[in-house]
């Protein structure tokens, strides 16, 4: 690596570190103002996730979904396509996986599980691909169409969860539980961490190579950087308004399936809530680099786990925990977004 690139990386990482630092300071101030035992609260907020293997495992488990959605967003953004519908795609994916598992109660885990995962991926891919198709066909704005489709899908899935697919034997708003054979292996008991984290890490590395070295990855990147150039050079530009969206949606659907099959074993109402939006933040922090998505997702999971631990062990209320999280979230995303847009502008100039 050359000097300039290292310098660039340093300045962007120090910038990011600085932002995170400032965000942490604000959170500490907030806690001091609002908590009667600030020392304890701060301790659990920052160190809590590492105090018990249960917390630690759950934190890792949280990052799995974020890695998948973060990858989905990174692929889309790299290709200059825009997916704001991650929430709906993940939720629909969760529902699809649940339905498939429930309707195939007597298959083996491998066969039925694969079907459920593929079904979830296909569902997410279809929903996001639709926005891609609209843009390809009529030039519809992808940000808006993906968001609106997702908003509608969330309502439909909510209806299914609370209506026709509601499990009457249970007072929660949820579907019935999926069969034992479809539940992913837990690898760090008593926490909920399951085997899919291995696949998440593998997926990140595979996506990196896919984008850098594969035929489609190359063409997608070229389209993402300069569509005029790509079209001139004979790359099928229209196709790549849709393909990256479908891939992105597929990742979101997969995140939904993993939430059900790895953690909750049923499709609760709002089971994937937040995965879509946080995936965007994760991708932005990772600068759309698939491998960097892993630490970015871990960082987000850490924030969440810290807030939970502080809530359990100190007088931090749910609201304070959420506010603290939001402060960090906004500052970090704003910084990442700033970088995203300034490099974009430079590219355009």
């Amino acid at each position: 690596m050359d000097r300039k690139r290292i310098a660039g990386l340093l300045s962007s990482t120090t910038g990011l570190a600085l932002t995170v630092g400032i965000a942490f300071v604000i959170v500490i101030i907030l806690i001091f103002v609002l908590s009667k035992e600030p020392g304890r609260a701060i301790y659990y907020f920052f160190v809590g996730p590492f105090t018990k293997s249960y917390y630690f495992g759950n934190m890792l488990n949280q990052s799995i979904g974020l890695i998948f959605t973060g990858l989905g967003i990174a692929v889309a953004f790299r290709s200059s396509t825009f997916n704001l519908g991650g929430e709906g795609q993940a939720y629909a994916g969760a529902m699809a996986a649940t339905v498939i598992c429930l309707s195939l109660p007597s298959l083996t885990g491998i066969v039925g599980g694969t079907a459920a995962i593929l079904g979830a991926i296909a569902t997410g891919a279809f929903l996001a691909g639709l926005s891609g198709f609209f843009r390809m066909r009529w030039g519809t704005d992808q940000l808006i169409s993906s968001f609106l489709i997702s908003a509608a899908v969330i309502l439909i899935v909510n209806y299914l969860v609370t209506g026709p697919l509601d499990d009457p034997t249970n007072s929660m708003l949820t579907t019935a539980r999926i069969g034992q054979q479809y539940q992913f292996l837990r690898i760090f008991k008593p926490s909920k961490l399951d085997i899919s984290i291995v696949f998440a890490v593998a997926a990140a590395i595979a996506t990196y190579f896919f984008m850098q070295r594969s035929h489609w990855g190359y063409e997608m990147r070229m389209c993402g950087i300069n569509r005029e150039f790509s079209r001139y050079a004979g790359i099928n530009v229209a196709k790549y308004l849709m393909v990256p969206m479908a891939i992105s949606g597929g990742f979101h659907g997969l995140a939904g399936a993993v939430a059900v099959m790895g953690t909750h074993y049923r499709c609760l109402k709002g089971v994937t809530a937040g995965l879509g939006w946080n995936g965007i933040a994760v991708a932005l922090i990772a600068k759309n680099n698939p491998v960097a998505v892993i630490p970015a997702a871990l960082f987000f999971a850490y924030l969440d786990a810290g807030a939970r631990a502080a809530m359990l062990h100190a007088d931090v209320t749910f609201e304070l925990a959420k506010i603290a999280q939001a402060v960090i979230f906004f500052l970090v995303t704003a910084q990442a977004l700033y970088g995203f847009f300034t490099t974009r502008k430079r590219v355009a100039a």
Partner: peptide
Amino acid sequence: RRGASLPTTVRENCIVTKHHDFL
């Protein structure tokens, strides 16, 4: 804008019209 993609490497610019040959 059309003939070259400035942020990408020279290498990736050079193969754009015949990258199929390198697959």
